[in-house]
Design a protein around this nucleic acid. Structure first.
Lengths: 201, 201
DNA sequence: CCAATTGACATACGCAGCGTATGAACTTAC
DNA sequence: GTAAGTTCATACGCTGCGTATGTCAATTGG
């Protein structure tokens, strides 16, 4: 077995770095993740990181983009199998909450990410979870489900905030199950504020 | 002029440390704030920090508590001069948004704080901004303004999330004025979802 | 098929920054 | 007035990042 093409080797190296970095970031956090440690774990050294990702920050950014792509995919799956647009939207929101409960996502995407890279607006603008939700809101508006005066982007942003904080509260609650139930009730109530009067049940 | 009582000297030292640390954290951020630098700026050394605050984290915690206390006070002022409870609540929410726009608050309280110290639930549980908002929600519920099935804590948490993300979006927008207008509309819509049907206009 | 060149990493070095252990001065208590 | 405790400064070692440099393999051009 001779050597495989170079492009494959590179892709594998990048993949290994992303994997071990993601695990380190997700467990001990960005600040306490030693580059020497998790590169060694991947059988490499820091040199590879500086070459491929420019540095520790670049690596974090790449990890986040990877996770965000996975989240977007999962959310798409959820909203696809709803019977009507509004329910699909609500389901997607709740799925987003559930995902934010996963330790890896919570830590990397929602805590260290904004702290290290700044506001999420910069790195998840195109084709990310936020973009997907924004598109969803726009559709609901066109179909008359929600109020006409609502701006899709602003609305998506706010709902995103609701989801994140709800999730955070649930995650850190001593009784996650009960917290989840209470959050869902309040969440649904808030969302109903968006509906046009003719759509309020 | 002889020596003043020791307790005064200590208080002054603590105050100076808090002040310079707060400035450093608020501008360059927690990670890039060198303890040697901002202690020197206060005419002291790191030794003082480890003695009084236990370390860098402890100092951040103290700074956050100081800011949170100021925020609580300011919010209280706002809601006090409203004509009715619901308007007072809405005003308080919008004031919270505005405060989250201030760079120092945004950076220290909403970004570095959670990243370094973990979830805000731990450090702002008692007598903080969240507690105040929660109390407000409870009152509104008792007075019949908002739905009975809503849990005050969960609701306050979600609204907090709405405020934070709205503020963040406004702050990073290229047109803050326009963004602010769009956020306010969506924010009000969401809040109206909390109202009892008899209170919806 | 063989240089020449580029790319993909590893190695070595320097430096900043944190935490701790130690020490000195000053205060308070008795 | 002395002993004890407090408040800070100083000194030390360690970890961890970034960069500069080196090395080897792979690709390219003739």
């Amino acid at each position: 077995m001779a050597h495989r093409p170079r492009s494959e080797m590179i892709a594998e190296t990048k993949c290994k770095l992303l994997e071990s970095a993601r695990r380190a970031f997700g467990t001990v956090g960005y600040a306490d993740a030693s580059m020497d440690d998790f590169t060694a774990e991947a059988g490499l050294t820091r040199g590879a990181i500086y070459h491929h990702f420019g540095g520790k920050k670049g690596l974090l950014e790449a990890v986040i983009m990877q996770i965000d792509a996975e989240m977007t995919e999962r959310l798409h799956e959820v909203s696809k199998r709803a019977s009507n647009p509004w329910d699909g939207f609500v389901d997607e929101c709740l799925a987003y909450v559930e995902m934010a409960l996963e330790p890896e996502i919570q830590r990397i995407v929602h805590r260290d990410g904004p702290a290290v890279l700044g506001d999420p607006l910069g790195w998840s603008n195109q084709e990310g979870c936020l973009a997907a939700m924004m598109k969803h809101v726009r559709t609901l508006k066109q179909q008359g489900y929600i109020r006409q005066e609502l701006d899709p982007e602003a609305t998506a942003r706010l709902i995103n905030g609701v989801s994140l904080h709800g999730a955070q509260w649930i995650a850190n609650s001593h009784d996650p199950k009960q917290a989840s139930d209470r959050i869902v009730i309040a969440f649904r109530a808030l969302l109903e504020g968006l509906l046009t009067t003719s759509n309020v049940n």
